[in-house]
Design a protein around this nucleic acid. Structure first.
Length: 459
RNA sequence: GGCGGCGUGGCCGAGUGGUUUAGGCAGGGGCCUGCAAAGCCCCGUACGGCGGUUCGAUUCCGCCCGCCGCCUCCA
């Protein structure tokens, strides 16, 4: 049974599902006004890993993650570049999915766009107004947090202490500084939707309430996102749902931030690295492995050094696949299937116990490296069958974490001819020619390893 | 000011009241190899500071120092 940290209680709690065997999860996606950065990659990887582990445990997962395609920053960019809103949002949404694919992330079951749910949002806001929980001002509609029982749950602070730290903008008509906007009345040059309060657009916090409840239903299992979203975004989502009598998320999960040089990486600090850039020069699997080796809730330092470290570690795992010819071998998709097919039961059980403990991926990965060592050790001792069995177990567990290992690559004709010529040269003990040919292959980006079966190529 | 987290060997990064170690990367030494590569073995004996609890603390408690996050758009 998986136990997960719950932001609402601050403790690690058993994940008790609404519907046994099925998991409903909603993960806050991103606002598409620019290329995605590595922080976006982190949340997507963190929840991909959670999703995959749930599936590996034999559960069926419905995963919803939204695209926010209406927002101040999008409007600003569109105006600045004299483009339509849709033109901007579709460009960056496309860039996001490219990055998601490159990171080996399974796409969401459903990825709704905020603009597709504006009517439902208006209905929700009207309901809140009707109940006297929300109120209209000259510039919009606001929710009164005093009217919501338990406000501050996710911040883990009382209303009073939150109020003490709140910033008040001059000229605000809000009744309490913590009140937040549900509907923004249109200003000139902004896209609008009709509403009972005149033309305008929804506030950010409303879309996720409407979309999660529509696509997953009341009382869905997991609501996740980056830790910065816990307050106020998720707090405010919850407030709206609770205020209209809906049961919201059963379990709140938040991932830690990417750090650069000891500071949170963020657009506003200007110290961000675009995910697109990272993936142009790095194997996406290395970023996944880097994150797997730290806990999803801790901050992780992402630098060229830590990425390079992960790339090196990955090479060792890939080498395992080459050694035991696991290229293209079908991998079990669940723990039950894996053990049924002969995977090492002790290793699988150990993996699960680490993962069940709030996704202990660092220990799980350490176990995989240990498995790799045992596999090599067995083969070095002459027991190739046992070595292969352990290596296959390692590959299955990697796959459960979303890491697909690479093995030999089929060379093109010219390369193959060169490799064959080198094998011949070695057989003739013509070392000078053999070394020259190897150097040529290396120059073409091929690595060559000699073995009992002749030279083996990989990229 | 309020709330929360962190400080581990050259680097990244887990974890635990005590007997034998996380793991990875880098480094040194060996084995294997025509030379490599891959692999295996061995090596460095780390837990911010000061007190306290304890037979014993890196692990619990207190204080201090340093760092970070949230309280505002934010993954």
């Amino acid at each position: 049974m998986l136990r997960l940290h719950d932001t609402a209680t601050g403790r690690i709690e058993p994940l008790v599902l609404r519907d046994p065997g099925q998991v409903s999860m909603y993960v806050c996606g991103l606002t598409v006004y620019d290329v995605p950065h590595i922080g976006h990659g982190r949340f997507a990887l963190a929840f991909d890993i959670l999703r995959r582990y749930l599936e590996f445990s034999g559960l069926e997962v419905r995963y919803v993650s939204n695209i926010t395609d209406i927002d101040d920053k999008i409007i600003a960019r569109a105006n600045e570049e004299k483009r339509t809103l849709t033109d901007v949002t579709r460009e960056f949404e496309a860039a996001w999915w490219v990055a998601v694919d490159a990171l080996g992330i399974t796409r969401p079951t459903v990825a709704p766009r905020a603009t597709e749910y504006v009517d439902d949002m208006v209905t929700l806001v009207a309901d809140l107004v009707g109940r006297g929980i929300a109120y209209e001002t000259s510039d919009g509609v606001y929710l009164s947090v005093d009217a919501v029982p338990g406000y501050g749950l996710l911040a883990r602070q009382s209303l009073d202490s939150l109020r003490a730290g709140a910033r008040v903008e001059p000229g605000e008509e809000k009744r309490s500084p913590l009140d937040f906007v549900l509907w923004k009345k249109a200003k000139p040059g902004e896209p609008t939707w009709p509403s009972p309060w005149g033309p305008g657009r929804p506030g950010w916090h409303t879309e996720c309430v409407v979309m999660s409840l529509d696509l997953l239903g009341d009382d869905f299992d997991i609501h996740g996102g980056g830790i910065d979203l816990a307050f106020p975004h998720h707090e405010n989502e919850r407030a709206q749902a609770v205020a209209v009598g809906r049961t919201f998320a059963r379990h709140w999960v938040h991932n830690g931030h990417v750090m650069m040089g000891g500071e949170k990486m963020s657009k506003s600090l200007g110290n961000f690295t675009s995910l697109t850039d990272l993936l142009e020069r790095t194997d996406g699997r290395a970023y996944r492995l880097l994150l797997l080796r730290s806990h999803y809730r801790s901050q992780v330092e992402v630098t060229p050094d830590t990425i390079a470290d992960a790339e090196e570690a990955l090479k060792g795992l890939d080498a395992l696949v080459r050694r035991f010819h696991l290229e293209g071998v079908p991998l079990a998709a669940t723990a039950a299937q894996a053990t049924a097919e002969g995977a090492d039961a002790v290793a699988v059980a150990s993996f699960r116990s680490h993962m069940d403990d709030d996704l202990g991926t660092p220990a799980a990965v350490a176990g995989i490296f240990e498995l790799a060592r045992q596999a090599n050790l067995a083969a070095d001792a002459g027991d190739n069958t046992e070595g292969r069995r352990l290596a296959l177990t390692a590959a299955v567990l990697c796959a459960a974490l979303g890491l697909r290992l690479h093995g030999r690559v089929e060379p093109d004709e010219a390369t193959k001819a060169k490799a064959d010529a080198r094998d011949a040269a070695r057989a003739a003990k013509d070392w000078a020619r053999a070394d020259a040919l190897r150097a040529e292959l290396e120059a073409d980006g091929w690595h060559l390893e000699d073995g009992p079966e002749g030279g083996q190529l990989h990229r």
